[in-house]
Amino acid sequence: MSGRRSERRLVPAYMATGGRAAPSRNTFDRLTLLSAAGGPLPGRLAPAQRRLAELVNGGPLSLAEAAAYLVLPVSVVRVLVADLVDLGVLHARAPVPRAEQHDPRLLERVLSGLRAIR
C-alpha cells in the first residue's frame, strides 16, 4: 500500500474566487434562510411556486430543506426562490458571508454551542 501523495494530481484552487463571480440566481445558496413575507399569496402562482410559498408559510427553512421537502432539485428551488422574492412573497437571507466564514467570534459561538450539546 503506498501513500496518498503518490496518487496526487493537482488542479487549480477554485475557492479563492469561488463565491463572488457566481451568476445572480446562484446567489441563493443551499443555506439561504427562507421566511414568509407575510402578506396574502398572489392568486396567480405556478403550482411549484405555490407549494414553496405554502411550505415556508409554516415557518423558516433553509433552501436545502425546502428542496428536500418539496422533492425538487436545488437548482429548481433556487429559481422558485428568486421568483417568489421578486413577487414579494418570500424573504431570503443570505448565509454567513465569505468574509465572516473564518471569523473567530462566529467559530467561538459554534464551538461553545457544540460543547453545550456534548
Binding site: 443555506l31 409554516g58 433553509s62 448565509p95
Partner: peptide, 17 residues
C-alpha cells in the same frame, strides 16, 4: 405528507460543515 421541522423564529445564522 412532508411535515416540515421548521427553524426557530429567532434563527439568524446558518453555518455548515
Amino acid at each position: 405528507d412532508n411535515a416540515a421541522t421548521y427553524l426557530g423564529s429567532n434563527t439568524q445564522t446558518l453555518v455548515k460543515v
